[in-house]
């Protein structure tokens, strides 16, 4: 995606990423982790702020650092990196709250035309996966890299 994004760091298996959000609230380190689930090749993506004092990761905090588009583009680029290395994987994403899941939907909608060339994108609605639709309020999302 041709969008401003932050420099990503990761350990060498590309399952844990870090970047620093820079804005009016200061420099906020963020962590992204792709975690295994019970099903092979199905990963959950989790994302949150890293508390430098406690070392905890908080995925419910609202940072309000004025860079949500850049943060979202950076998270999406981590999915590109992860699925480039693991092209057969599915990546599941849901917000920590309904409001945050709605934000994700808005984010996906905004860039859908670009990401849909590279990913199959599905949303969970009423216990069914359906192809992503900008008008539907989904409960979760799953993406898979399109084979080229």
């Amino acid at each position: 995606m041709d969008l401003p994004k932050y420099q990503l760091s990761a350990e060498d298996s590309l399952t844990v990423f870090e970047f620093v959000s820079i804005g009016p609230k200061g420099n906020i380190p963020k962590l992204i982790k792709f975690s295994e689930t019970h099903l092979k090749d199905f990963y959950n993506i989790g994302f949150g702020d890293k508390n430098l004092e406690t070392g905890d990761i908080d995925d419910k905090i609202i940072s309000n650092n004025g860079d949500s588009d850049k943060v979202l583009a950076t998270v999406v680029s981590s999915i590109y990196a992860f699925t480039d290395l693991n092209p057969e994987t599915w990546v599941y994403a849901t917000g920590s709250t309904k409001a945050r899941t709605r934000l994700y939907r808005m984010g996906i909608s905004k860039y859908y035309d670009k990401v849909s060339h590279d990913f199959e994108v599905y949303g969970l609605k009423d216990e069914q996966w359906i192809r992503f639709d900008k008008e539907i309020d989904f409960e979760a999302f799953v993406v898979k890299r399109i084979k080229k």
Binding site: L8, S9, S77, Y80
Partner: peptide, 14 residues
Amino acid sequence: IPIVKIDNSLKKFK
């Protein structure tokens, strides 16, 4: 596909 800087100190989060 981003250029990712390798930082193996992140392994502890795995």
